[in-house]
C-alpha cells in the first residue's frame, strides 16, 4: 500500500510537470516591450518552483517507500541534523529564492508601474461599463472634453456623457468600440469605469489592470507586433462579465491614421 502510494505520488508529480516542460499550455507570444522581462521572470520562477515541487514530492515518496510498514523491533532514526537542518535548509533555499525573485523580479513591475509614460505617448481613454469597453481619442486638438455622467445615454450612443454642443474640447473627440493603436508607439491608457469594477486584460500584451470606480487610473505600454488581439474583462462585473470584451488592433502608423479618419467620419 505504501509503496503504491509512493509510486503514485511520483507518477502524479512527473505527469504534472510534463505539460509545463513541453509548453503544451503556455502564455501566448508576447507583443509588448515590457513583456520579455515578465516572461523571463516567469521561466525563472517556473524553474525554481518546478524543482522544489518535484524534489519535495519525490523525497516524500522515497521516505514513504522506505519507512512504511511497522518494524516493531527497529529503532527510530532521526534525519541527520534534525529540525535545525530543516530550518537552515528552508532559510537558505527559500531565502535565496525570495531574494532572487523578490528583488530582481521587481524590474518587470517597475518597468510597468514606476516609470511615467514618455512625453510622446499617445493618450487614449478607455471606459468600462456593464458590459462593454468604449474608447476615446482626443481628436485634432489633443484634448479630451469633460465627462458629464448625468448625460450618459447609451440609446443615443453617448457612452461617455459628452456634451458636444457645449464643450468645445469634446467636439472632435472620437469614440470607438475597438482599440486601435499604432505599432511601436507608446500608449498612455486612461482608465475610467462608468459603473462597477472591471479589469483590462490583454494576455499577449502582458497587461492587466483593474478599473477603479470613482478613481481614474492610468497605464502605459508599447505594442510591437501588428495584429488583432482580444481585450477581456477580468473583474467580475455582473451577468455579462464573460461576454465583456473588445478587440485590440495593432496597426502600422499609416493604417492607424486612416482608421482614425474613418472613425471620425462615423461620429
Amino acid at each position: 500500500m505504501a509503496k503504491f502510494l509512493a509510486v503514485t505520488i511520483v507518477i502524479i508529480a512527473i505527469a504534472s510537470a510534463v505539460p509545463i516542460l513541453r509548453h503544451t499550455w503556455a502564455p501566448p507570444q508576447d507583443i509588448s516591450t515590457h513583456g520579455p522581462l515578465i516572461d523571463e521572470q516567469m521561466s525563472d520562477t517556473m524553474a525554481e518552483a518546478g524543482i522544489s515541487f518535484l524534489a519535495a514530492q519525490i523525497i516524500l515518496a522515497i521516505f514513504i517507500w522506505m519507512f512504511a510498514g511497522a518494524r516493531p523491533e527497529g529503532k527510530i532514526k532521526t534525519f541527520p541534523g534534525g529540525a535545525k537542518a530543516m530550518v537552515i535548509a528552508s532559510l537558505l533555499l527559500v531565502g535565496t529564492e525570495v531574494l532572487a525573485l523578490g528583488i530582481f523580479g521587481q524590474r518587470a513591475w517597475a518597468s510597468v508601474y514606476f516609470t511615467p509614460p514618455g512625453p510622446n505617448a499617445m493618450p487614449v481613454q478607455v471606459q468600462a461599463g456593464q458590459f462593454a469597453f468604449y474608447f476615446r481619442y482626443p481628436g485634432a486638438d489633443g484634448k479630451f472634453g469633460p465627462l458629464h455622467p448625468e448625460q450618459i445615454n447609451e440609446g443615443n450612443q453617448n457612452f461617455f456623457g459628452l456634451d458636444t454642443a457645449n464643450d468645445p474640447d469634446s467636439k472632435d473627440d472620437i469614440v470607438t468600440a475597438e482599440l486601435a493603436i499604432p505599432v511601436n508607439r507608446e500608449i498612455h491608457l486612461l482608465m475610467h469605469s462608468k459603473d462597477v469594477g472591471h479589469s483590462f486584460y490583454v494576455p499577449e500584451l502582458r497587461v492587466q489592470q483593474d478599473f477603479v470606480p470613482g478613481l481614474d487610473v492610468s497605464l502605459h505600454f508599447t505594442a510591437t507586433k501588428v495584429g488583432k488581439y482580444e481585450i477581456v474583462c477580468t473583474q467580475l462585473c455582473g451577468l455579462g462579465h464573460y461576454n465583456m470584451k473588445a478587440y485590440l488592433e495593432v496597426m502600422s502608423p499609416d493604417d492607424f491614421n486612416s482608421w482614425l479618419k474613418q472613425q471620425a467620419a462615423l461620429q
Partner: peptide
C-alpha cells in the same frame, strides 16, 4: 517530510 525519515510509518 524529514520526520518520515527513520520512522515506523503505519499506513
Amino acid at each position: 517530510i524529514g520526520s518520515l525519515y527513520g520512522s515506523k510509518l503505519r499506513i
